[in-house]
Design a protein around this nucleic acid. Structure first.
Length: 284
DNA sequence: TGTATTTGACCGTA
DNA sequence: TACGGTCAAATACA
């Protein structure tokens, strides 16, 4: 297989462009985390859309004859969403538990309960939906808290693979309205768990390639599971903000239904999941 | 019996 | 000092 110099150059430019845009997005995300950067929310959204354009183009190439060359170009890891993403609660109890020096500490594990640094910046992305969403990842609930001025408690979830793979992804779910029910889900951290995930076919819906994604073989999705007993369902009416607008990616109902497999369901819930997908496919 | 959830306690931050 | 994020023992569940 041989490619023209122009084609190779175009791929390199795409990869480089995505890398630079991700770096810009990281900067903007940090700004958004500060009160002084609130006016940049729209800018961040725009950057994320640009990121999507790069990622989508690369994913198309990934499924083409340029796959091999793409793999060569995409050697170095892509910058994932930062800010809260990937942040380790380095002095949380679990970190202490895993630290060799901690065992020598006079403090017992019980004594160190709750010793962590409160995250200064809030969720990296938030969505509101009318139902609890099965976002495709396995979450373990580790806490629930009554929040001041909130009618409903907030539930805290971490990735099931936190211990085995050190995955730092967490999310907070809070019911914000009763009738009709609305749930706010705040994601922070980024999924670094991979061994339960494997590449799966990913094709753009040509009816509207900018907005629709479909998956050709749900049997390749063993990782779509939810350990939570709550009534999760793929959401068709999710409103995203501080991430991507609701128009960025829409999973059409037929495609969503194709996610169901032996009681397992899931879906890409946001831009970050698109990044995850690319990473899992060796493009990140 | 192993795994997930519940819930009160703990503690850093504002 | 109140609030909120996390821990971990107790409990529930498959």
């Amino acid at each position: 297989m041989s490619w023209s110099w122009d084609t190779k150059k175009a791929i390199e430019e795409l990869v480089q462009g995505r890398e630079w845009t991700n770096q810009l997005r990281d900067l903007l995300t940090k700004s958004v985390g500060d009160e002084s950067g609130l006016e940049l929310v729209g800018s961040e959204d725009l950057v994320i859309k640009i990121c999507n354009t790069f990622s989508n183009t690369l994913s198309i190439l990934r499924n083409s004859n340029y796959n091999h060359y793409l793999s060569e170009v995409c050697q170095k890891p892509m910058n994932n969403m930062s800010c809260c993403d990937g942040r380790k609660s380095e002095d949380s109890g679990e970190s202490i538990k895993s630290s060799p020096s901690a065992s020598a500490s006079a403090l017992t594990l019980k004594d160190r309960r709750g010793s962590y640094k409160r995250r200064k910046c809030v969720a990296s992305r938030t969505n509101i939906s009318s139902a609890l969403i099965d976002d495709g990842y396995a979450w373990r609930k580790y806490g629930q808290k009554k929040i001041l001025n909130a009618n409903h408690p907030r539930s805290y979830y971490r990735c099931t693979h936190k211990n085995e793979q050190g995955c730092d992804a967490t999310k907070q779910v809070q019911k914000i309205q009763d009738d009709p029910p609305k749930y706010e889900t705040m994601y922070s951290g980024h999924h670094t768990c991979k061994n339960t995930l494997k590449p799966f076919p990913f094709i753009m819906d040509h009816n509207d390639s900018s907005k629709l994604i479909s998956f050709s073989n749900q049997h390749d999705l063993p990782f779509f599971s939810s350990s939570s007993k709550e009534d999760y369902k793929p959401a068709s009416d999710i409103t995203y903000y501080n991430g991507s607008s609701s128009s960025d990616y829409i999973l059409s109902p037929p495609h969503l239904s194709s996610f169901h497999h032996d009681g397992i369901s899931g879906g890409l819930d946001s831009v970050a999941d698109i990044d995850d997908f690319l990473s899992f496919n060796g493009m990140g």
